[in-house]
Nucleic acid binder design. Structure first.
Lengths: 232, 232
DNA sequence: TTCCCTATTTGCGCCAGCGCAAAGACAAGG
DNA sequence: CCTTGTCTTTGCGCTGGCGCAAATAGGGAA
């Protein structure tokens, strides 16, 4: 199996610990607790008191949020070098989302006092976190805007592009989104239903834009998809 | 019997400069430029290079974002003690939104080098900003979730409640949302159309939940509205 | 291989909500 | 007072997309 990373994650280069030396980071990591997660296992649940915040070392977590009716929306996927739940820990609240591993995943967790101590000792961390959070805020606002103003099919196209950028690996025959990705997940991410996603992917497959199988999507014509998402 | 509705802005008590002494703040403010805005005047436009970030001293700004098709979504309203565009300034990008005054508004602006200097001299500012931004992220994510999973009328109800909390003033006959608020604005905020907003408000007026006039909304039965927004 | 479980597809009916268009209401300034 | 421009209401038709239900397909385990 080849692993080529033509598509890299921008956050990876602008992560919470950038600007710290290797030694510093090693010391920070040693203050946390490491953990390995199986696919489909849950790291923490929305509504539980936020004991720890986590850094993903390897693998991928899916962050979802439920409303009162119990319906689910995918907030984002996070990968190596990204953090989650720092929010909740700093504010001393409950976890605002549920985090579930979609592949074997390795994390490091810090509890509240430890993390606050780290931030206090290394103000650079707070500034870095600010930058990261601002990027997320931008992304969510962007998605919010799309959800307001765009048709379902456009939103599905954008979702695929987002996943492509974030978890795409280039193969001979287009760009494969390299995580187990059900129609339901795409729907949760795009704010629609699995039926509509299925119908849309089928249509795009006929156009030759994508190839999709069980929990797999490969984008064979990114350009067409981009154009579709942007214009009309 | 009547429970007191806390109509105060949480961010106002947790603002970017909390934890600094009066003298410190006075010195920071003196480094910035003050400005007075007429209603409907524009402080900055989405897409312009972000020269300065701003603190609202008095009045209220409406932050909106356009998509390629030129349709508008309201991101948020901000009031006294709140900041905007710190994002763009820190990242050295263009303004991600357009800011327009909805009432006579007084702001203080800092340019990039000055603000970076301030953050460097007072790390507390970075930490405070982090908290504020996290709150906004939460709110946007919450709204995103609502937009995904809730019916239009529920979203309108939540929008009114949000505006009520943020800009409500208690009067003899219910809580008045004390900003010029057109049906179109409510629609942009809720992710629907002015027609639907109009029809919905008319229905609620018949129920005695609200009273509305030209660019004014008064909530006469907050409890009913809350219940409607929450449950189903 | 076969069984079983889960994911996916697709036909079909239906309705919430969009948006045009036209009329009505309100505010400000002659 | 009337005029003008903007905001709001409401009738009406239409359609995007939801979601049930049932058939189909993959993939893992034994």
């Amino acid at each position: 199996m080849e692993k080529e990373l033509a598509i890299k994650n921008p956050i990876e280069t602008a992560n919470v610990f950038s600007g710290l030396t290797e030694q510093h980071f090693a010391r920070l990591a040693s203050r946390g607790q490491h953990d390995n997660l199986q696919p489909k296992s849950t790291l923490f649940r929305q509504g539980d008191p936020a004991q720890k915040c986590f850094l993903v070392r390897q693998g991928r977590l899916k962050l979802t949020k439920l409303n009162e009716a119990g319906k689910e929306a995918i907030i984002r996927y996070i990968g190596p070098a990204e953090m989650t739940a720092a929010v909740a820990v700093i504010k001393g609240m409950d976890y605002p989302v549920t985090a579930e591993a979609v592949e074997p995943t390795e994390v490091t967790g810090w509890d509240k006092p430890t993390f606050l101590r780290l931030m206090h000792d290394h103000p650079q961390i707070a500034i870095n976190m600010l930058r990261v959070v601002l990027e997320r805020l931008d992304e969510v606002q962007q998605r919010y805007l799309e959800l307001c103003n765009e048709a379902v099919e456009q939103r599905i196209a954008r979702t695929l592009m987002r996943l492509m950028r974030h978890a795409g690996s280039r193969t001979q025959d287009g760009i494969l989104i390299d995580i187990p990705l059900s129609r339901q997940s795409i729907a949760d991410y795009s704010g629609t239903t699995l039926y509509t996603v299925s119908r849309t992917l089928t249509a795009w497959e006929r156009n030759g834009w994508v190839q999709s199988g069980r929990e797999r999507v490969r984008i064979t014509n990114p350009h067409a998809l981009v154009q579709f998402a942007e214009g009309s």
